[in-house]
């Protein structure tokens, strides 16, 4: 489904519900917007990808991303900046400085939270521990159990952000490390089933913590043909996540994939390729008068295609 069609579908849904309704202006007055910005699989791409004819050459660059983020922060009242893992590995910046610069620059951009990807274990638990002081943002990880490692108590399963009274719960899920990362690197880190953990997280965040929006930072991967757990299976098997921001498979999506649950709840799944070629952006509107989707803007914009030559 192209973004165009998706927006149209959403518009129909909105029209159906607005028939019940309070005037749009009254709703709009009470609406609060939240802008979620996100990256995944940055792979130590500090500088833009060399413009030497390779794919996506000339794209990316953390100093440019900072400019974009600053611009959006000036325009939008509520911004959350999140990352779905594999911050590390891929350029000599990581090999020479061990991830220090990546964390420092992400702190500079004021990331709110990140989760761990498999390559974030590439210098072992010791290498990760050594770099954590450079990160001014928290890592959320709900399904890795670090209790038997040197990283015990260094990560929280989730973090809650409050923006103008809207509570946003953000939790993290990591991929199975066995076979992907050398055992000597992840040591006694235990991988727990993402589906079971995600269900617990939804219950905790929705019911106990009274969150209005639940975001999962996942490094599971978008979709596999095997029965290996991925973001699409997670979205189908766990009810109640609003947004899954994925990584690992370096997937470029024209628009977030929507998974509809039988109770009408929708889970969006998004991923923005890799290397910081794109900054992901999803805007949510919240309205206090409980009108579902009366204020979805339905402007039809062309689907972005990667700019490789600009």
């Amino acid at each position: 489904m192209k973004r165009r069609d998706f927006l149209r579908t959403t518009a129909v849904g909105a029209a159906g519900i607005s028939l019940l309704g309070v005037p749009f202006s009254a709703v709009a007055a009470q609406s609060i917007t939240l802008t979620i910005l996100h990256t995944n699989d940055q792979h130590s791409r500090i500088d833009p990808i060399p413009d030497d004819g390779r794919k996506h050459g000339g794209m990316g660059g953390m100093a440019r991303r900072k400019t974009l983020i600053e611009q959006i922060r000036k325009e939008e009242p509520n911004v959350l900046l999140l990352d779905s893992g594999d911050i590390w590995q891929g350029t000599p910046y990581f090999n020479f400085f061990g991830g220090e610069l990546e964390y420092k620059l992400m702190s500079e951009m004021k990331y709110d939270a990140a989760t761990l990807g498999n390559h974030d274990f590439d210098n072992g638990l010791v290498g990760l521990e050594k770099m954590l002081p450079h990160a001014a943002f928290p890592f959320v990880s709900a399904n890795y159990d670090f209790s038997k490692t040197i990283l015990e108590n260094r990560f929280e399963p989730y973090k809650i952000f409050e923006k103008q009274g809207v509570r946003i719960g953000v939790f993290g899920l990591g991929i199975e490390l066995d076979g992907l990362v050398s055992k000597s690197m992840y040591g006694e880190t235990v991988y727990n089933d993402p589906v079971a953990v995600a269900r617990e997280m939804v219950q905790e965040l929705r019911d106990k913590q009274k969150c209005n929006l639940i975001v999962c930072l996942s490094h599971l991967g978008y979709k596999y043909s095997s029965d290996k757990i991925d973001d699409m299976k997670l979205a189908q098997q766990v009810d109640g996540i609003d947004l899954i921001l994925g990584g690992h498979t370096h997937t470029f999506l024209d628009e977030p994939t929507v998974v509809q649950h039988s109770n009408g709840h929708e889970t969006l799944v998004n991923q923005v390729g890799w290397s910081g070629i794109f900054l992901g952006r999803i805007d949510f509107s919240f309205n206090k008068s409980s009108k579902k989707k009366t204020d979805v803007r339905t402007a039809v914009l062309p689907v972005n295609t990667p700019v490789t030559t600009s």
Binding site: P256, N270, N287, S310
Partner: peptide, 15 residues
């Protein structure tokens, strides 16, 4: 608060 996504511009090119 009920969330409604606006998906006008989900990929901001960093170019």
């Amino acid at each position: 608060f009920v969330a409604s996504p606006v998906l006008e511009n989900t990929d901001v090119p960093v170019d």
